[in-house]
């Protein structure tokens, strides 16, 4: 079943001659994981905003389960079925609300449960995404970047979406925390039957999370196909340049025998 669909979506910002996004088609089926790769100015963030309905395209349309964003109202179930994870974990949370309040608000808004029930469910959800119990009643300024990102994920999950659009979900996190969030996103895809759209400049992230990928440059698609194929045998020169530019891609990448045994993946 098609959950999310971009049909000839085109975006030109007011006062700009060059479109930020050239007409583009994209289909997100149930359970799919699609990567959108590009550098700054590639139009990938604009596409992300159009996909979640936060920006109305100047041409074409984005459909959620067959209905265009322009027809979907605030209270329709389609509104909650597409949610986003943002790049900057701090600015994606209301600085004046605790982790629990942030998640409980979304639950109460959609399911009209009592305050106590929404708080209890929020607590469960935050535990599911791995937020330590001690952090649950903290505001963002007392959480680490990775913890904020978990709260953002829990907030998105609170309204039981079908598609999660993640815009650079790990690029502002420390290396040791990045892997935690990547693993979380990957396991959510399985356990909650979520479709993922991952927007990133980092081919490693795209390769880890997605099955298919779209490579964008200057607002247009230059290559698309299976992620592993794009990574192993890029066809477009730009894709090849991107793959080659990954620092330290060769050499020590697999030369780490003691480490895997040392680090238990599920402590």
């Amino acid at each position: 079943m098609t959950l999310l669909e971009a049909l000839g979506v085109e975006v030109t910002y007011p006062g700009q001659a060059v479109p930020a996004l050239h007409p583009l088609d994209l289909v997100v089926e149930e359970g799919a994981a699609i990567g959108i790769v590009g550098e700054s100015g590639s139009g990938k963030t604009t596409l992300g905003r159009a996909l979640i309905g936060a920006l109305s395209p100047s041409g074409g349309e984005v459909r959620v389960q067959g209905r265009s964003w322009s027809e979907i109202r605030r209270t329709d179930p389609q509104r909650r079925s597409v949610q986003m994870i943002f790049q900057d974990p701090y600015s994606s949370l209301n600085p004046h609300m605790t982790a629990r309040q942030t998640v409980a608000e979304a639950i109460r808004h959609w399911y009209g449960v009592t305050r106590g029930e929404s708080r209890r469910r929020a607590e469960q959800l935050l535990a599911d995404v791995g937020l330590p119990g001690a952090a649950i009643d903290r505001r963002p300024d007392r959480l680490s970047g990775g913890q904020c990102q978990r709260v953002g994920i829990a907030r998105a999950l609170a309204c039981e979406p079908r598609v999660l659009v993640a815009d650079e979900p790990t690029s502002s996190l420390d290396v040791s925390v990045q892997a935690q969030i990547l693993n979380l996103l990957r396991s959510l895809r399985r356990t909650r039957a979520l479709a993922l759209v991952v927007i990133s400049h980092d081919l490693g992230v795209i390769r880890y999370l997605t099955d298919r990928a779209v490579v964008m440059r200057s607002g247009a698609v230059v290559e698309q196909g299976e992620t592993e194929r794009i990574f192993a045998a890029p066809r477009h020169p730009y894709t090849r340049a991107l793959v080659d530019a990954i620092p330290g891609r060769t050499g020590f990448a697999r030369a780490l025998e003691p480490a895997p045994r040392a680090m238990d993946p599920n402590p």
Partner: peptide
């Protein structure tokens, strides 16, 4: 981002103004 998130969560404009913008 958090205000964009509030919109994608379908919050009312009144809620966005009073809960998410006015404290700041």
């Amino acid at each position: 981002d958090y205000v964009v998130a509030a919109r994608t969560l379908g919050y009312t404009q009144a809620r966005i103004v009073t809960r998410h913008l006015m404290p700041s």
